Computed example of a mutant assay.
Amino acid sequence: MRGRGRGRNSYRGRGRGRGRGSFNKSTIVCYNCHGLGHFQYECPKWNDEANYVDEDHMLLMTYEKVQNYNMHNVWFLDSGCSNHMCGDHGTFTELDENFKHTVRLGNDSRLQVHGKERISLPVGGIKYVVRVVYYVPELNNNLLSVGQLQEKGLAILFKHNTCSIFHDQRG
Results as ranks from 00 to 15, higher is better:
Q150D: 07
D78L: 00
Q40C: 07
G13K: 11
L77T: 02
L60K: 01
M71L: 08
Y128L: 14
G35R: 14
R12N: 08
K127H: 08
V129Q: 12
N9M: 00
S10L: 04
S120Y: 01
G21T: 09
E49L: 09
L144F: 04
F99S: 12
W46R: 15
P122A: 04
R14G: 03
R8C: 09
L105C: 15
V66Q: 09
S22G: 11
D88P: 01
V113P: 00
V136G: 02
N161M: 13
I119A: 10
N107F: 11
L59Q: 04
G171V: 06
R20D: 04
C163Q: 06
G5S: 11
G87D: 03
R170T: 12
G37L: 10
N51Y: 07
L60C: 03
G106A: 15
C33W: 05
H38D: 00
F158Y: 06
M61C: 07
H72I: 04
C43V: 08
P44Q: 09
N83M: 06
H167G: 14
S26W: 02
C86M: 03
T93K: 13
V74C: 08
H89F: 10
K25A: 08
Y31L: 07
G171N: 15
G17A: 14
V29P: 01
R12I: 05
N142Y: 13
S26H: 04
E94A: 10
W75C: 02
S79N: 01
L36A: 05
I119Q: 05
T93F: 01
N9T: 01
D56H: 10
R6Q: 11
D54P: 03
E151W: 03
N142P: 08
H101R: 13
P137F: 13
K100H: 14
G5H: 09
S120E: 11
N51K: 12
V113M: 02
Y135E: 00
T93W: 01
H89P: 00
S164P: 00
V29M: 03
V53H: 01
T93L: 07
K127T: 10
W46L: 12
D78C: 00
V29H: 07
D108Y: 10
K45E: 06
M61F: 07
D108N: 15
V146R: 04
Y134W: 13
N70H: 13
F99E: 11
C163F: 06
N107M: 08
D168H: 14
S79V: 01
V103A: 09
V103K: 10
H38R: 01
S145W: 12
L105T: 15
Y63L: 02
G147N: 10
